[in-house]
């Protein structure tokens, strides 16, 4: 078998398969346009900075220069005192020191599943790998405690192999991949502690 044969066969296979199912894409552009109607792309970090420093285009460059100079002065002066002002802190301490958001630490995940034999937690914090829950006192409530850095985390429980993504303790529930996932905001205002 020659490489060219194989490459040709691969191309033909992928294209043939896509062509077989192309009818699924019928009208996708219209459906997406309608779904997004009235929604704008999320503002980017650059937009926020621009809005802060330059309400008009004419003054933008001058204001950026002033901002850069001010930042440089702060960095130089701050650098002199850095060892005293900012000892090595973990994320929780850093957030607490900054006074932003609510305090946080261990996050508890609970799920009632009295008849289950295995319950695991999967989520964006563990790369969607299984973290087992335990029901040590056999009261039917499975539990695990995790220490998470500040952020937004999607997750779900898997109870005896069944996806269960609507945790009542979640900050919100989102629909993705045809199922539900729960969301917790750790260390952010309005989120979980």
């Amino acid at each position: 078998m020659y490489n060219d044969d194989l490459e040709h066969q691969l191309k033909e296979t992928f294209e043939h398969e896509a062509a077989l199912h192309r009818d699924r894409l019928e009208g996708l552009e219209s459906r997406i346009s309608e779904e997004l109607e009235g929604r704008l792309p999320k503002p980017g970090f650059g937009d926020l900075i621009r809005d802060l420093v330059a309400p008009s285009k004419a003054g933008r460059m001058g204001q950026l220069v002033v901002l850069a100079a001010t930042a440089a002065v702060f960095l130089i002066v701050g650098g002199l005192f850095l060892p005293e002002l900012s000892p090595q802190l973990n994320p929780a301490e850093r957030l607490a020191e900054a006074g932003g958001g609510v305090a946080f630490g261990t996050t508890v995940f609970l799920v009632p599943a009295p008849n289950a034999s295995e319950v695991v937690l999967v989520g964006s914090f563990n790369n969607w790998e299984a973290t087992p829950l335990a029901d040590e006192d056999l009261d039917g409530i499975w539990r695990v405690e995790l220490t998470l850095d500040p952020g937004r985390y999607e997750y779900a429980f898997v109870v005896d192999g069944q996806w269960w993504g609507q945790d009542p303790a979640a900050d919100e529930t989102v629909r993705s991949y045809g199922g539900y996932s729960s969301v917790r905001y750790i260390g952010l205002a309005g989120g979980d502690a």
Partner: peptide, 12 residues
């Protein structure tokens, strides 16, 4: 700018 029909053309 929020022109979702333009985005629809990208999708197409």
């Amino acid at each position: 700018q929020g022109e979702t029909e333009a985005w629809g053309e990208i999708v197409a």
